[in-house]
Simulated scan of single mutants.
Amino acid sequence: MTVINNARADVRTEERDDGKGGRNVTFVLEEQVASAITRPGSAANRAMRANFGVGQRLVKR
Rank of each mutant, 00 (worst) to 15 (best):
M1F: 07
M1V: 09
T2M: 04
T2L: 06
V3A: 11
V3D: 00
V3N: 11
V3P: 00
I4L: 11
N5L: 01
N5T: 08
N5W: 09
N5K: 06
N5I: 01
N6G: 08
N6F: 05
N6L: 03
A7Y: 10
R8A: 15
R8G: 00
A9T: 08
A9M: 08
D10H: 05
V11C: 01
V11I: 15
R12K: 10
R12V: 13
T13S: 13
E14A: 06
E14G: 06
E14S: 12
E15C: 05
R16V: 03
R16L: 06
D17H: 03
D18T: 01
G19D: 03
K20S: 05
K20C: 05
G21V: 01
G22H: 04
G22Q: 07
R23A: 14
N24L: 13
N24W: 03
N24S: 10
N24I: 15
V25W: 03
V25P: 00
T26N: 03
T26L: 06
T26A: 12
F27R: 07
V28H: 08
L29V: 11
L29H: 12
E30T: 14
E30G: 06
E30R: 12
E31L: 01
E31I: 00
E31A: 13
E31V: 02
Q32S: 11
V33M: 12
A34G: 15
A34I: 06
S35L: 10
A36N: 09
A36C: 05
I37P: 01
I37G: 05
I37D: 03
T38Y: 02
T38M: 10
R39E: 15
R39V: 06
P40S: 14
P40G: 10
P40I: 11
G41I: 12
G41E: 15
G41T: 04
S42F: 02
S42L: 06
S42N: 14
S42G: 04
S42Q: 11
A43K: 14
A43N: 08
A43G: 10
A44R: 01
A44N: 09
N45A: 13
N45E: 13
N45W: 04
N45C: 05
N45F: 02
R46K: 15
R46I: 04
R46E: 15
A47W: 06
A47T: 12
A47R: 12
A47F: 13
A47P: 02
A47K: 12
M48Y: 05
M48E: 05
M48N: 04
R49E: 08
R49S: 14
A50N: 07
A50G: 07
A50Q: 13
A50R: 12
A50Y: 02
N51H: 08
N51P: 00
N51C: 03
F52H: 14
F52T: 06
F52C: 08
G53F: 07
G53V: 08
V54A: 13
G55S: 12
Q56C: 03
Q56A: 14
Q56H: 04
L58G: 14
L58Y: 08
V59T: 14
V59L: 11
K60N: 07
K60D: 04
R61S: 09
R61C: 01
R61V: 09
R61G: 07
R61L: 09
R61T: 04
